[in-house]
Protein backbone atom coordinates (compact mmCIF):
# COMPACT_ATOMS: atom_id res chain seq x y z
CA UNK A 1 0.00 0.00 0.00
CA UNK A 2 1.20 3.47 -0.77
CA UNK A 3 2.28 5.62 2.15
CA UNK A 4 1.75 8.73 0.06
CA UNK A 5 -1.21 11.04 0.48
CA UNK A 6 -2.93 12.02 -2.71
CA UNK A 7 -2.13 15.62 -3.62
CA UNK A 8 -5.01 17.89 -2.92
CA UNK A 9 -6.84 15.42 -0.68
CA UNK A 10 -6.64 17.59 2.43
CA UNK A 11 -7.76 20.72 0.57
CA UNK A 12 -10.70 18.83 -0.92
CA UNK A 13 -11.72 17.55 2.51
CA UNK A 14 -11.57 21.08 3.86
CA UNK A 15 -13.72 22.25 0.96
CA UNK A 16 -16.36 19.69 1.96
CA UNK A 17 -16.04 17.48 -1.12
CA UNK A 18 -17.96 14.35 -0.29
CA UNK A 19 -15.85 11.80 -2.16
CA UNK A 20 -12.65 13.25 -0.70
CA UNK A 21 -14.08 13.06 2.82
CA UNK A 22 -14.96 9.42 2.20
CA UNK A 23 -11.44 8.78 0.91
CA UNK A 24 -9.89 10.37 4.00
CA UNK A 25 -12.17 8.32 6.24
CA UNK A 26 -11.11 5.13 4.48
CA UNK A 27 -7.51 6.05 5.32
CA UNK A 28 -8.05 6.73 9.02
CA UNK A 29 -10.46 3.84 9.58
CA UNK A 30 -8.03 1.14 8.53
CA UNK A 31 -6.24 -1.12 10.97
CA UNK A 32 -3.65 -2.46 8.55
CA UNK A 33 -0.13 -1.79 9.75
CA UNK A 34 1.35 -0.64 6.49
CA UNK A 35 -0.82 2.45 6.18
CA UNK A 36 0.54 3.86 9.43
CA UNK A 37 2.61 6.74 8.08
CA UNK A 38 -0.11 7.80 5.71
CA UNK A 39 -2.65 7.88 8.51
CA UNK A 40 -0.28 9.88 10.65
CA UNK A 41 0.41 12.40 7.91
CA UNK A 42 -3.27 12.84 7.10
CA UNK A 43 -4.23 13.31 10.76
CA UNK A 44 -1.49 15.92 11.20
CA UNK A 45 -2.37 17.86 8.07
CA UNK A 46 -6.06 17.85 8.88
CA UNK A 47 -5.38 18.98 12.45
CA UNK A 48 -3.26 21.96 11.44
CA UNK A 49 -5.67 23.08 8.73
CA UNK A 50 -8.88 22.93 10.78
CA UNK A 51 -10.22 26.24 12.11
CA UNK A 52 -10.41 26.08 15.89
CA UNK A 53 -14.06 27.15 15.96
CA UNK A 54 -15.05 23.95 14.16
CA UNK A 55 -16.40 21.79 16.92
CA UNK A 56 -17.37 18.23 17.73
CA UNK A 57 -20.54 17.86 19.77
CA UNK A 58 -21.40 14.64 21.55
CA UNK A 59 -25.00 13.54 22.07
CA UNK A 60 -25.18 10.96 24.79
CA UNK A 61 -27.88 9.54 27.02
CA UNK A 62 -29.82 6.35 27.61
CA UNK A 63 -31.53 4.41 24.82
CA UNK A 64 -35.04 5.71 24.23
CA UNK A 65 -34.19 9.30 25.14
CA UNK A 66 -34.71 10.28 21.50
CA UNK A 67 -31.09 11.05 20.60
CA UNK A 68 -31.59 10.25 16.91
CA UNK A 69 -34.67 12.41 16.63
CA UNK A 70 -32.91 15.25 18.40
CA UNK A 71 -29.87 14.82 16.17
CA UNK A 72 -32.12 15.06 13.12
CA UNK A 73 -33.71 18.27 14.40
CA UNK A 74 -30.35 19.85 15.29
CA UNK A 75 -28.84 19.02 11.91
CA UNK A 76 -31.90 20.45 10.17
CA UNK A 77 -31.57 23.68 12.18
CA UNK A 78 -27.86 24.04 11.39
CA UNK A 79 -28.31 23.26 7.70
CA UNK A 80 -31.18 25.74 7.41
CA UNK A 81 -28.90 28.35 8.99
CA UNK A 82 -26.37 27.69 6.21
CA UNK A 83 -23.90 25.45 8.01
CA UNK A 84 -22.59 22.10 6.81
CA UNK A 85 -22.81 19.25 9.32
CA UNK A 86 -20.98 16.00 9.85
CA UNK A 87 -22.37 13.17 11.91
CA UNK A 88 -20.99 9.97 13.35
CA UNK A 89 -23.72 7.67 14.67
CA UNK A 90 -22.56 4.76 16.80
CA UNK A 91 -24.57 1.55 17.18
CA UNK A 92 -23.66 -1.54 19.16
CA UNK A 93 -21.85 -4.52 17.69
CA UNK A 94 -23.49 -7.89 18.27
CA UNK A 95 -21.43 -9.78 20.82
CA UNK A 96 -22.15 -13.11 19.21
CA UNK A 97 -21.63 -12.50 15.52
CA UNK A 98 -19.38 -9.44 15.48
CA UNK A 99 -21.84 -7.88 13.02
CA UNK A 100 -24.02 -4.84 13.53
CA UNK A 101 -27.16 -3.21 12.24
CA UNK A 102 -26.78 0.49 11.71
CA UNK A 103 -30.25 1.95 11.43
CA UNK A 104 -29.93 5.69 11.91
CA UNK A 105 -29.82 6.32 8.22
CA UNK A 106 -33.38 5.10 7.79
CA UNK A 107 -34.50 7.50 10.51
CA UNK A 108 -32.59 10.63 9.51
CA UNK A 109 -33.30 11.73 6.00
CA UNK A 110 -31.43 14.49 4.25
CA UNK A 111 -31.42 15.22 0.55
CA UNK A 112 -28.39 14.07 -1.43
CA UNK A 113 -27.54 17.70 -2.25
CA UNK A 114 -27.68 18.96 1.34
CA UNK A 115 -24.33 19.57 3.10
CA UNK A 116 -24.76 16.70 5.56
CA UNK A 117 -22.28 13.85 5.78
CA UNK A 118 -23.38 10.95 7.92
CA UNK A 119 -21.24 7.95 8.83
CA UNK A 120 -22.65 5.05 10.86
CA UNK A 121 -20.24 3.15 12.99
CA UNK A 122 -20.36 0.01 15.10
CA UNK A 123 -18.76 -0.16 18.55
CA UNK A 124 -16.63 -3.14 17.50
CA UNK A 125 -16.45 -4.34 21.09
CA UNK A 126 -14.91 -1.16 22.45
CA UNK A 127 -16.47 -0.11 25.73
CA UNK A 128 -17.44 3.47 26.29
CA UNK A 129 -20.34 3.70 23.85
CA UNK A 130 -17.94 4.70 21.11
CA UNK A 131 -16.14 2.82 18.39
CA UNK A 132 -12.32 2.68 18.15
CA UNK A 133 -12.05 5.07 15.20
CA UNK A 134 -14.68 7.56 16.34
CA UNK A 135 -12.24 10.35 17.04
CA UNK A 136 -10.33 9.91 13.81
CA UNK A 137 -13.52 9.88 11.73
CA UNK A 138 -15.04 12.82 13.59
CA UNK A 139 -11.80 14.75 13.06
CA UNK A 140 -12.05 14.26 9.30
CA UNK A 141 -15.60 15.64 9.44
CA UNK A 142 -14.50 18.49 11.69
CA UNK A 143 -11.97 19.47 9.05
CA UNK A 144 -14.80 19.75 6.53
CA UNK A 145 -17.73 21.14 8.52
CA UNK A 146 -18.23 23.74 11.27
CA UNK A 147 -20.34 21.27 13.28
CA UNK A 148 -19.87 17.57 13.77
CA UNK A 149 -22.27 15.53 15.88
CA UNK A 150 -21.30 12.27 17.54
CA UNK A 151 -24.26 10.19 18.71
CA UNK A 152 -23.29 7.47 21.17
CA UNK A 153 -24.90 4.12 21.89
CA UNK A 154 -26.05 5.36 25.28
CA UNK A 155 -25.07 2.61 27.67
CA UNK A 156 -24.81 4.59 30.91
CA UNK A 157 -21.66 3.95 32.91
CA UNK A 158 -19.21 3.70 30.08
CA UNK A 159 -20.24 6.98 28.46
CA UNK A 160 -17.18 8.66 29.92
CA UNK A 161 -15.13 8.13 26.73
CA UNK A 162 -17.31 10.58 24.81
CA UNK A 163 -15.64 13.40 26.72
CA UNK A 164 -12.32 12.54 25.13
CA UNK A 165 -13.68 12.84 21.62
CA UNK A 166 -15.93 15.90 21.79
CA UNK A 167 -15.59 19.59 22.53
CA UNK A 168 -19.10 19.87 23.94
CA UNK A 169 -21.05 17.02 25.48
CA UNK A 170 -24.86 17.10 25.60
CA UNK A 171 -26.58 14.62 27.88
CA UNK A 172 -30.10 13.84 26.70
CA UNK A 173 -32.58 12.33 29.13
CA UNK A 174 -36.25 11.65 28.87
CA UNK A 175 -38.78 12.78 31.43
CA UNK A 176 -39.79 10.64 34.35
CA UNK A 177 -37.09 8.05 33.80
CA UNK A 178 -35.15 8.57 37.00
CA UNK A 179 -32.11 8.78 34.74
CA UNK A 180 -30.86 11.94 36.40
CA UNK A 181 -30.19 10.11 39.65
CA UNK A 182 -28.75 7.10 37.89
CA UNK A 183 -26.35 9.28 36.01
CA UNK A 184 -25.32 11.14 39.11
CA UNK A 185 -24.46 7.85 40.79
CA UNK A 186 -22.46 6.76 37.80
CA UNK A 187 -20.40 9.93 37.87
CA UNK A 188 -21.66 10.92 34.47
CA UNK A 189 -23.35 14.12 35.55
CA UNK A 190 -19.91 15.62 35.81
CA UNK A 191 -19.19 15.22 32.14
CA UNK A 192 -21.93 17.07 30.25
CA UNK A 193 -21.61 20.69 29.27
CA UNK A 194 -25.33 20.87 28.59
CA UNK A 195 -28.36 18.92 29.73
CA UNK A 196 -31.38 18.37 27.58
CA UNK A 197 -34.64 17.12 29.02
CA UNK A 198 -36.08 15.79 25.81
CA UNK A 199 -39.74 15.19 24.88
CA UNK A 200 -40.69 18.40 26.68
CA UNK A 201 -44.08 18.05 24.99
CA UNK A 202 -44.90 15.46 27.67
CA UNK A 203 -45.55 18.38 30.05
CA UNK A 204 -45.51 17.83 33.82
CA UNK A 205 -43.07 14.87 33.96
CA UNK A 206 -40.63 16.89 31.85
CA UNK A 207 -40.84 19.86 34.20
CA UNK A 208 -40.30 17.60 37.20
CA UNK A 209 -37.22 15.99 35.68
CA UNK A 210 -35.85 19.41 34.87
CA UNK A 211 -36.38 20.57 38.45
CA UNK A 212 -34.65 17.44 39.78
CA UNK A 213 -31.66 18.07 37.58
CA UNK A 214 -31.40 21.71 38.51
CA UNK A 215 -31.46 20.91 42.21
CA UNK A 216 -28.68 18.36 41.74
CA UNK A 217 -26.61 20.89 39.81
CA UNK A 218 -27.19 23.52 42.49
CA UNK A 219 -24.99 21.38 44.77
CA UNK A 220 -22.05 22.77 42.85
CA UNK A 221 -19.81 21.65 40.00
CA UNK A 222 -18.18 18.25 40.09
CA UNK A 223 -14.44 17.84 40.56
CA UNK A 224 -13.59 17.65 36.86
CA UNK A 225 -15.89 20.43 35.68
CA UNK A 226 -14.85 23.73 34.13
CA UNK A 227 -15.04 26.28 36.93
CA UNK A 228 -16.43 29.14 34.84
CA UNK A 229 -19.08 27.30 32.83
CA UNK A 230 -22.54 27.10 34.33
CA UNK A 231 -24.07 23.92 32.90
CA UNK A 232 -27.49 24.82 31.51
CA UNK A 233 -30.55 22.55 31.66
CA UNK A 234 -32.76 22.91 28.60
CA UNK A 235 -36.20 21.54 27.80
CA UNK A 236 -36.51 20.54 24.18
CA UNK A 237 -39.07 18.78 22.04
CA UNK A 238 -37.76 17.68 18.67
CA UNK A 239 -41.34 16.73 17.80
CA UNK A 240 -42.78 20.24 18.16
CA UNK A 241 -39.49 22.14 17.75
CA UNK A 242 -39.93 23.86 21.12
CA UNK A 243 -36.63 24.70 22.79
CA UNK A 244 -34.55 23.70 19.79
CA UNK A 245 -33.47 27.29 19.15
CA UNK A 246 -32.34 27.55 22.77
CA UNK A 247 -30.22 24.43 22.36
CA UNK A 248 -28.58 25.76 19.20
CA UNK A 249 -27.83 29.02 21.01
CA UNK A 250 -26.50 27.29 24.13
CA UNK A 251 -24.15 25.20 22.01
CA UNK A 252 -22.88 28.36 20.29
CA UNK A 253 -22.34 29.94 23.66
CA UNK A 254 -20.37 26.96 24.91
CA UNK A 255 -18.24 27.07 21.80
CA UNK A 256 -17.49 30.76 22.36
CA UNK A 257 -16.71 30.03 25.98
CA UNK A 258 -14.22 27.31 25.01
CA UNK A 259 -12.44 29.63 22.62
CA UNK A 260 -12.45 32.76 24.80
CA UNK A 261 -11.38 31.02 28.00
CA UNK A 262 -8.73 28.90 26.38
CA UNK A 263 -10.44 25.87 27.93
CA UNK A 264 -11.10 24.46 24.49
CA UNK A 265 -7.46 23.97 23.64
CA UNK A 266 -6.63 22.73 27.13
CA UNK A 267 -9.43 20.19 26.87
CA UNK A 268 -8.37 19.02 23.45
CA UNK A 269 -4.88 18.35 24.63
CA UNK A 270 -6.12 16.63 27.82
CA UNK A 271 -8.46 14.51 25.75
CA UNK A 272 -5.76 13.61 23.31
CA UNK A 273 -3.54 12.34 26.10
CA UNK A 274 -6.40 10.38 27.64
CA UNK A 275 -7.17 8.76 24.27
CA UNK A 276 -3.54 7.90 23.67
CA UNK A 277 -3.16 6.40 27.13
CA UNK A 278 -6.29 4.35 26.60
CA UNK A 279 -5.02 2.85 23.40
CA UNK A 280 -1.53 2.50 24.89
CA UNK A 281 -3.00 0.54 27.75
CA UNK A 282 -5.17 -1.61 25.48
CA UNK A 283 -2.04 -2.41 23.43
CA UNK A 284 0.58 -2.90 26.15
CA UNK A 285 -1.52 -3.48 29.26
CA UNK A 286 -0.90 -2.05 32.72
CA UNK A 287 2.60 -3.48 32.51
CA UNK A 288 3.31 -0.97 29.76
CA UNK A 289 2.05 1.88 31.93
CA UNK A 290 4.28 0.75 34.83
CA UNK A 291 7.30 0.85 32.59
CA UNK A 292 6.54 4.55 32.12
CA UNK A 293 6.29 5.02 35.89
CA UNK A 294 2.49 4.67 36.24
CA UNK A 295 -0.47 6.52 34.72
CA UNK A 296 0.25 9.95 36.21
CA UNK A 297 3.87 9.88 35.16
CA UNK A 298 2.81 8.72 31.70
CA UNK A 299 0.42 11.67 31.45
CA UNK A 300 3.18 14.07 32.46
CA UNK A 301 5.51 12.63 29.83
CA UNK A 302 2.83 12.70 27.17
CA UNK A 303 2.19 16.40 27.86
CA UNK A 304 5.72 17.17 26.78
CA UNK A 305 5.31 15.52 23.39
CA UNK A 306 4.05 17.61 20.45
CA UNK A 307 2.09 16.16 17.56
CA UNK A 308 -0.84 13.97 16.81
CA UNK A 309 -2.31 11.06 18.77
CA UNK A 310 -0.10 8.75 16.80
CA UNK A 311 3.07 10.76 17.43
CA UNK A 312 2.42 10.68 21.14
CA UNK A 313 1.62 6.98 21.05
CA UNK A 314 4.77 6.12 19.14
CA UNK A 315 6.93 8.22 21.45
CA UNK A 316 5.47 6.61 24.58
CA UNK A 317 5.94 3.17 23.08
CA UNK A 318 9.57 3.98 22.38
CA UNK A 319 10.06 5.42 25.89
CA UNK A 320 8.66 2.27 27.46
CA UNK A 321 11.14 0.23 25.46
CA UNK A 322 8.32 -2.05 24.32
CA UNK A 323 8.00 -1.11 20.69
CA UNK A 324 8.23 1.74 18.29
CA UNK A 325 5.68 2.83 15.73
CA UNK A 326 2.56 1.00 14.72
CA UNK A 327 -0.70 0.53 16.56
Amino acid sequence: MSEELRDGLVAEVQAGEVRAIAEAMAIVDDLRRDGFLRRQRLAAELATGTPSHHSIIGLTGPPGAGKSTLAGALIRAWVDAGSGVGMVAVDPTSQRSGGALLGDRARLRFGPKEPVFMRSLATRHRLGGLAPATHELASVLRAAYPRTLVETVGVGQSEVAVEHVCDSVVLVIQPGSGDALQFMKAGILEIPDLFVVHKADLGAPATRTRNDLESILALGPGPGADPDWKTPVLSVSAQTGDGLGDLVEALDEHRRYLIDSGQGERRRSRSRIARVLDSFQSTYGSHGLELLGGRDAAIARAREIDGTDLDVFAELAALSGLASGGR
Binding site: V18, G99, L102, R105, A106, F117
Partner: peptide, 22 residues
Protein backbone atom coordinates in the same frame (compact mmCIF):
# COMPACT_ATOMS: atom_id res chain seq x y z
CA UNK B 1 -21.78 -4.28 9.60
CA UNK B 2 -25.03 -3.45 7.83
CA UNK B 3 -26.33 0.03 7.13
CA UNK B 4 -30.06 -0.16 6.47
CA UNK B 5 -31.12 2.84 4.41
CA UNK B 6 -34.82 1.99 4.42
CA UNK B 7 -37.40 2.43 1.71
CA UNK B 8 -38.31 5.14 -0.84
CA UNK B 9 -34.80 6.10 -1.84
CA UNK B 10 -33.89 7.84 -5.06
CA UNK B 11 -30.80 6.39 -6.79
CA UNK B 12 -28.98 9.64 -5.88
CA UNK B 13 -29.76 9.17 -2.19
CA UNK B 14 -28.43 5.61 -2.29
CA UNK B 15 -25.24 6.71 -4.04
CA UNK B 16 -24.68 9.39 -1.40
CA UNK B 17 -25.36 6.88 1.38
CA UNK B 18 -22.90 4.32 0.00
CA UNK B 19 -20.16 6.94 -0.33
CA UNK B 20 -20.71 8.51 3.09
CA UNK B 21 -20.90 5.16 4.82
CA UNK B 22 -17.80 3.79 3.14
Amino acid sequence: EVVYAGIRQTPQELIAAAIQEG
